[in-house]
Amino acid sequence: MTWGHDIAPPSVAIPLSRWPVIGVRLCLLAPLVFGGLAILLALRLLERPLFGLRRPITPFLTQGVCRLALRIIGLRLNIQGKPMTKPGAIVANHASWLDIFVLNAADRVYFVSKDEVAAWPGIGWLARATGTVFIRRNRRDSALHKLLFEARLRAGHRLLFFPEGTSSDSRRVLPFKSTLFEAFFTPALREFLHIQPVSVAYHPPQGQDRRLYGWWGNMDFGAHLLVVLAQARRGQVDLVFHPELEVAAFPDRKQLAIAAQTAVRQGFDAAHAAAP
């Protein structure tokens, strides 16, 4: 299956009656997110010199803020399975900017993202503050990425990758790019590392377009945020934590990528099949 950004996103008109609701939700969401960011930055001034790469305090703040943000946004979080406790990384399908709130609310994770995200207004600031690892999509930097991942994993960070390499319209799981799994097979990591596949499945309020929560292609973030906040009924997102995969049990990155993709796609399909 191929995927192209030439597929037109849904065009949604916001009724005048919903603008007061949008205003209230924005007035609650903005202080929560940016106030939490200010507190997090202040705590990092103490955390960094005391603990270095380790972050024993601030991830709990991030998790609490994201849980409250989902309530304000109007998105119910349903978690199936449990986040692993073994050292390693998480791989998940990627549908929307909402994934940041959803996955942080469920587990204390650190995202791995393309480097251009760091320059995005709003999202980039939040990503940098919460410890996102930014990488360049250039094979010449692969050795540097491996060292960076190893340092973060040995510090106890649970890294979260989106192996699809892009976001989708929330209705499908795209093929996983095996190159993102290469770093897990370094001798320093392979023998102790585990990978946990996670399926993310969004269910819009009844009667709404199935792609409502998807954010892809050239969609404008601000416009999409307003559409999400305008919803009269709550939507739901299912997070399915699958059994972890032992990296050492796989001969190469391609086989590991296939196993992770299969688990994510099966969980995604099952979550949608069970939806009312």
Rank of each mutant, 00 (worst) to 15 (best):
Q63A: 10
T262I: 04
V102Y: 02
Q63L: 03
F34R: 03
T166L: 04
L45G: 09
R253F: 11
M219R: 03
T58C: 08
H242N: 05
T166F: 09
I72T: 13
S17R: 15
A274C: 03
L160M: 03
H94S: 01
Q196M: 05
P175Y: 09
G52T: 08
R210T: 10
C27I: 13
F176V: 10
R48S: 09
V21H: 08
N93Y: 14
G88A: 13
A271R: 02
G156R: 09
F51K: 14
G35E: 04
S96I: 08
F221W: 01
G235K: 02
R234H: 10
P59M: 11
I100S: 00
G52H: 14
D141F: 07
T2E: 04
V12A: 07
H145G: 04
W215R: 03
L16N: 06
I57M: 11
E246W: 02
G52I: 06
D107V: 13
I39G: 00
F176H: 08
R136Y: 07
D252Y: 05
K114I: 05
H5C: 13
R76L: 05
G81S: 14
H94R: 09
R253Y: 04
I73N: 09
A92T: 03
A8M: 08
E191K: 10
P9Y: 11
P121E: 05
A248S: 11
D209K: 15
A106M: 06
I57F: 06
H5K: 11
T62V: 12
F162N: 06
I39V: 14
N78T: 10
R140L: 14
G222N: 15
G217W: 15
V237P: 15
F181M: 12
L229A: 11
N138C: 08
R233K: 14
I72D: 09
D6G: 02
A183N: 00
R158W: 02
A259K: 05
I72A: 14
S96V: 06
P251G: 04
P9L: 08
W19D: 03
T85P: 06
L40Y: 00
L40I: 01
A69K: 09
